[in-house]
């Protein structure tokens, strides 16, 4: 009896209110230098994309026959291209296409994949079998080849490239959501929600979904990086953003023809893709560790 009395909890008044899991995750994320630097770089790129008209010194589409293939200088920081357009302005405006493609295609993939994964994991049976086999089949088609084929059949444009990348990335989210649902649905709180008469829809959206959101967020961040590379690849092949609108991928495509006398045309758009993708990957890694309570 005495022993039982000793392990009784302390009075509630002396306990500090527990920190929310999101706050704890943010604290852990802040301790990760790499992730925070990446977040800083991403914020700069997003800021540059939004305020491109204010930051870019020149009109990105304006040609100047007196400034064809000028090397980087104080006047043209990143040099000029084969028709005298300012590369710095084009790289800044190009961020719009890349970020848009990254975010929108992941939204498409998440919007299609998460409900399908939720349905498969929660319903089980033939619904699960059907969705899972279809997912396996899509995952069997190499990502870029399927995206190229889809973009080619839909027709070349940035919108179609985003749809192609989004649809191609959907199975990643179906599989992840399904796996997470299978883990979460056997938890006691789901059983409790079911026993008090909650509808299946309510259990899936109010109890299961919030618990698998962190994993989906991490996957979304990393997939944005993949989607940005995929968009650049499609634009590089002429299946994404169409000229004269600037895109990092299409700028690299043109630059290939002028490697000998204007190498700067190939360097800066590539560095922009690399920095953006690296930042998303670093931030995604940091987010994964921060959202995992077992991480130090």
């Amino acid at each position: 009896m005495t022993a039982a009395a000793q392990v009784l909890p302390a009075p509630a008044a002396s306990i500090a209110p527990p920190e929310s899991p999101m706050r704890q995750a943010w604290k852990r994320l802040r301790r990760r230098k790499g992730a925070m630097i990446a977040l800083g770089v991403l914020l700069i790129i997003i800021f540059a994309a939004i305020f491109a008209p204010l930051i870019a010194p020149y009109d990105p589409a304006k040609q100047s026959w007196t400034a064809v293939r000028k090397a980087p200088s104080a006047l043209y920081w990143f040099g000029t291209d084969e028709v005298g357009r300012d590369m710095f302005s084009r790289v800044i405006y190009g961020a719009r296409a890349s970020l848009m493609a990254g975010v929108i295609s992941v939204c498409i993939a998440l919007g299609l994949g998460a409900p399908l994964g939720l349905l498969a994991g929660y319903m089980g049976g033939w619904v699960d079998a059907l969705i899972s086999r279809f997912t396996d089949a899509m995952l069997a088609c190499p990502f870029l080849i399927l995206a190229i084929a889809l973009a080619a059949f839909l027709g070349p444009s940035l919108t179609n490239a985003m749809i192609a990348i989004g649809v191609t990335a959907t199975p990643i989210f179906v599989r992840l959501t399904r796996g997470q649902v299978l883990t979460v649905k056997v938890e006691n709180y789901i059983e409790a929600a079911r026993s008090i008469g909650n509808s299946q829809w309510r259990i899936a959206t109010r109890h299961i979904l919030p618990n698998i959101l962190p994993q989906l967020m991490v996957q979304a961040t990393v997939t944005i990086a993949t989607a940005i590379i995929a968009e650049a690849a499609l634009s590089f092949l002429g299946l994404g953003q169409q000229p004269p609108a600037p895109s990092w991928g299409s700028m690299l495509n043109v630059a290939q023809r002028f490697l000998t006398n204007a190498p700067w045309m190939a360097i800066f758009p590539g560095v922009a893709i690399f920095a953006t993708v690296l930042s998303f990957n670093l931030f995604g890694d940091g987010l994964r560790d921060a959202l995992d309570p077992r991480s130090k």
């Binding site: 650049a232 690849a233 690299l252 190939a266 360097i267 758009p269 893709i273 993708v277």
Partner: peptide
């Protein structure tokens, strides 16, 4: 992982 292979090729 973050380097687009087509850019690496060009470089």
């Amino acid at each position: 992982i973050s380097t687009p292979n087509f850019w690496l090729g060009i470089m």
